[in-house]
Every structure is written in structure tokens, then in C-alpha cells.
Amino acid sequence: MKVIKIDKNDWTRGIDKSRETYQLFGPVTDKNQSVFKQLGKEAYPEMGRTDTIMSPKSVLFPQTEKILTASLDESVENHHIMQMPETDTTPRAAIGIRPYDAKAVQLVKLNFDTPEYRDTYWCDAYEATTFVGLAVNKPSATDFSTSMGSGPFAEEGLDILLVDLEDHYLAKVLTPKGEAFLDGAGFNGVADTDASLKTIEGMKQAAEAAITTKVPTDKLKDKTILDLHSAPFWDDLAFSCINCGTCTFVCPTCWCFDIQDETKGKSTSRFRNWDSCMSPLFTKHGSGHNPRGEKTQRVRQRFMHKLKYFLDKYDQGSMCVGCGRCVEKCPVNIDIRSICNTMNSYEPQK
């Protein structure tokens, strides 16, 4: 394990140098909101931010993405035949991504990179990306990542873990991709490994201890899908929901999408757009029949998918990383932590 020490006075110079090789993405303020997006030439990642309102999922999965194009002009060759648009798969780096968000990328990967099909767009973007994580020294009140297989200093899905020590960063080099990024940025001051790891370990324990919320998930596995699905609490839990979809919008593991064609003149493009299970149209049949036409059914779908279906399908834990964004942003205070508790402690009537 190699640890690199980065003096904060060298930070912007290194970031600028890395731009020669990488397109950079990071946390910035946009219209008074903290978002994770591609950095302009003059922009630097705001590393002091506790978190971004929007998760960084858009680095790999843009809210709107052109996936195919075609000409509808019958006088040109290959009209009405879909073509791949130009896609940019040059190296990119997500700077300052939080450990739980990096874990989320690994969960989403199970959906887009399967033995049967490989989602070209997501997977190409994933392979092009170096994940430069930033450990969370002071977890927010809604952070429950330690209950969801992640944590403020978790390394899963990261190529580098940066730890902020006020005047410098310690960078744990986790993969060859991470090493290449640090080389490219000219960050090469090797720190004393043992001493650094000891420092980091101490900070890690302190940060983990600061997360006092514990959300048990241990009993979800042994309950059947049908028992949880038919549990009596769903109407109550869904009662206040206004189906606004904010939770799915900010969630780092919500990947559902829609596909739509848009035509201008004689040229058409097929786009993929984020979609939401909170919308009734999401599941409405051509006949008008809707298997999840009621609000309760949609709310149940979201939590069952996160906490039960995903668990049963992949055996890789919950499809939640405990970032707390949905808890913080829900306009009616629906809290996945308490819903998880309710589900986990539910004893079906035999």
C-alpha cells in the first residue's frame, strides 16, 4: 500500500496538470446548489463541501443521454438506420466522490454490466473513470452509510482515497488506475506508509463513531418477498408521499430510465432519460391497465426494490448506501431508515 502526501499548496497545480489527461468531474456550486458535474477549465472541485445535493451518478449516467441517431431523409444512404453517435470515452476522473457514492457505483454496475448484456454507454463511461474519493471526516446527521455496507472511509469502488488533514491530503493509492492519476497530476511525494495508515485509521474510527444511527438489515434476508409485500404497514408509510420523485432523483443507486425519440427536421435521436418508479406512467400498459397505479404500490416498489428485491436478486446487500440524501430532501419527511426498521422487524402473521 502506497500513501502519497499532497500539500494543499500544490493541489490546484496538480489538478490543472491532470486536466491534460483527464476530463474532471467534481463538487461545485451551481445556481446556489452543490452539484457534482463536469468542471469547466477554470473550475476546481470544492473539497470542503460536506456533500452534493445530487449524487455523482450523472458522471456515468447523464440525466439525458443521446444513445442512437438516424436520418429520416429518404434520399440519403442508410436513412432510418440507427447509428451510434459520437461518444467520449477519453479518461475522466471523479474528484472528491464520497465513499458511499463510490459504493453506489458498484451496486449500479450489477444492473448495467450483466453476463447477458453490457450497457455500452454506462460501462464505457465506467471504464474511462478514475474514482478519486474523499473520506468524510464529519458525517452529516442523515449519514447512515455504516449500516449499509459502506462508511465514511470505505474504499470499495475507489481508485484513490483522499483524507483531508487540514494543510495536506493523504492519498491512499488503491488501484493502478489511481496510481496513474496521481502520476498524471504530478503528486508524487511518498509518505511514510505505516505512520500515515495509522493516522488514517484513527480518523476513520472517529468518523465511524460519529455516525450514531444504526439501521439493522439483518432480518430482511429471511423474510419472503410476499410476506413483506403483503405487510399491513405500506398504506401508513405511503400516506404522506406526494410521489414527487425527489428521492429517486437524488439517489445514487436509482438507475431507472426511459427511452424517447426526438426528431428535428429530418434527423432523429434516441435519448435515454432518468425515469422514476414514483410516476404512474412508468408502468402503465398500452391498454390502460396499470400494475402499480396506486401511490402505495409505487412507494412499496421503491423500498422493496432497495431493501429486498435487490438483496434477493444479487445477494450483495441492500441497494442503498446510506448517503441520507432522500432523508434530507423528502418534502414530507419519509425516512428510509425508519422504513428499513419497520421492514426488518416485521413478523408476518402465520
Binding site: C277, P291, Q301, H305, F310
Partner: peptide, 24 residues
């Protein structure tokens, strides 16, 4: 069975019945 579908390859998330994806 049939359900509303978009991708047809088990990724877009709308056709599930429980953990099963009707399309895939």
C-alpha cells in the same frame, strides 16, 4: 406475461414483478 417495457434487457427497471424482470 407482459408488462410495460422500454429496454427489453433488464435494465430500465419498470417491468419487474418482485425481483423478476418480465423482459429478461
Amino acid at each position: 406475461l407482459e408488462n410495460r417495457m422500454k429496454c427489453g434487457i433488464g435494465m430500465c427497471g419498470r417491468c419487474n414483478i418482485g425481483k423478476e424482470l418480465v423482459c429478461k
